[in-house]
Simulated scan of single mutants.
Amino acid sequence: MSDSAPFTPDDLDAYFRRIGWDGQGGAPSADVATLKAVHLAHARAIPFENLDPVRGTAPSLAPADLIAKLVGSRRGGYCYEHNTLFAGVLEALGFGVTRLGARVVVGAERFEDRPRTHMALLVEIPGEQRPYLADVGFGAPGALLEPLPLTPDTEFRAVGRRHRLVHAPHRGPLELWVLETRAAGDRAPWQAQYAFTLEPFEHPDFEVINWHIATNPRSPFSSRPYAQRVTPDRHLLLDGALLTETRTDGTVTERELTRDAEVREVLAQDFGIDVPDDGTDLLP
C-alpha cells in the first residue's frame, strides 16, 4: 500500500469496529449525518498521544502503518496521524477532502508568530453547498467533536461544546479563518484555537512538518508525554506529569503524577494506551 493508496473494505471494517460505529444499521453514505457520526465516534474512541516523538521516533503517516497503530492496537497519535487516517476513511466513503495547514494560536498575541504546524481537513459533501471543517486530531480541550460548516460569524453548539469561525486580517491573497471556542456561559470570551487559509497542503508537506515536530528538541511534543481522551462525561488531559480531568459540568480536578510507572498506568487504564516497553523514561 502506497502513501496515496485508498483504504480497503477490510481497513474500513476494522476502523469502524475500532471507533464502535455500526453505520447506523446500513451502509455508510457520504452525507452530513455520517460525517458527524464518524467524526464524534473517532474523537471518543482513539486517543491523542505523542509517545513516539517522546521515544525519539517520527511516526509514520503511511496508510498501512496508521491502520496498524491507531486501528489495530491500543494506541493513538497526534494530528498528522489522526487526520491523515480520517481523511483516507472519508475519501473511501465518497467525501472530497482537502488537507489544510493551520497555525495553533492558543494564547498567541500575534497569529503570525506561530508556524503552520497543525493539520485540519476541509470536507466537501456531495449535494451540499458548504464544505465542513473537520478535525479529529487537535489535542486541546477546545477541539471539535463534530465538524463545523465553513460559515463565518455563526455559533454552533455540539456535544456540549461551542465553536465559531471568524475571519481575521492578515497579509496575503487568501482569507484567514480562525476557529474559536467558548466556555460555558454567554459572558465567557471567545478564545482563538487555530488559524488557517484554504490553501491545499499535500502529503509531502506534512511528512516534513511531522518529522520536524517529532524530532526538533524545541518541539513541545518531543520533550514530554501529552495525551488527551474524550468520553461522554469527561475530558482527560495528560501534560507531562500533570493529569487534568474536566467534567461536562465544568468541574476541573488536577493531579500531579510523580513516578514514570504511575504515568504508564494512567495511560493504560484511563487513556486506553498500551505504552511501548522499550525502557524509555516518559517523565523528563
Rank of each mutant, 00 (worst) to 15 (best):
A183I: 01
S223Q: 09
R161S: 10
G127W: 02
R171E: 15
E202I: 12
G101Q: 04
V166H: 02
G101L: 08
E124F: 14
R182W: 05
R161M: 04
P152S: 13
R116A: 13
P126Y: 13
F138I: 00
L176P: 01
V106F: 07
R187V: 15
R116N: 03
R224D: 11
A108F: 08
R171Y: 12
P220Y: 07
P189T: 13
A184S: 10
E199R: 09
R218C: 09
P173M: 12
R157F: 15
P131I: 08
P200M: 08
A140F: 10
R171C: 15
L179S: 05
F196Y: 07
G185Y: 05
L148W: 01
R114G: 15
G127C: 12
R229A: 15
A214C: 12
G137Q: 06
F95W: 07
G137R: 09
A168W: 04
G96W: 03
F111N: 01
P189F: 15
A134T: 08
G142N: 01
E199F: 15
P169S: 15
F201M: 08
R161Y: 03
Y132D: 00
A184H: 04
R162L: 08
R99F: 10
P225C: 14
F138K: 02
L148T: 05
M119N: 01
E175F: 12
Q191V: 14
G96K: 10
V97Y: 07
T151M: 05
L122H: 08
R171Q: 13
E155Q: 13
P152W: 06
Y194N: 03
R164H: 07
R157E: 14
G142L: 01
V136K: 00
R161C: 03
A108M: 05
R110H: 14
A102Q: 02
P141G: 02
H118V: 04
V230K: 01
V208M: 13
R182I: 04
P220S: 06
P217F: 11
L133A: 06
P141R: 09
F206A: 07
T197C: 12
L150R: 06
R234A: 09
G127S: 13
R164Y: 10
L179V: 07
P169K: 12
R164T: 06
R114W: 13
R161T: 11
L150G: 11
R218D: 09
R162Q: 05
V136F: 02
P232T: 11
V136Y: 02
I209C: 10
A192W: 00
A192F: 03
H163C: 04
H170V: 13
R164M: 03
P149V: 08
R229V: 06
Q193T: 11
F196Q: 00
E202C: 14
E128H: 13
V136N: 01
F221I: 09
R234E: 09
L145R: 02
T231C: 03
W177D: 03
V123L: 08
W211H: 14
L198Q: 04
L100Q: 01
G137Y: 07
L100T: 06
T117V: 13
R110N: 12
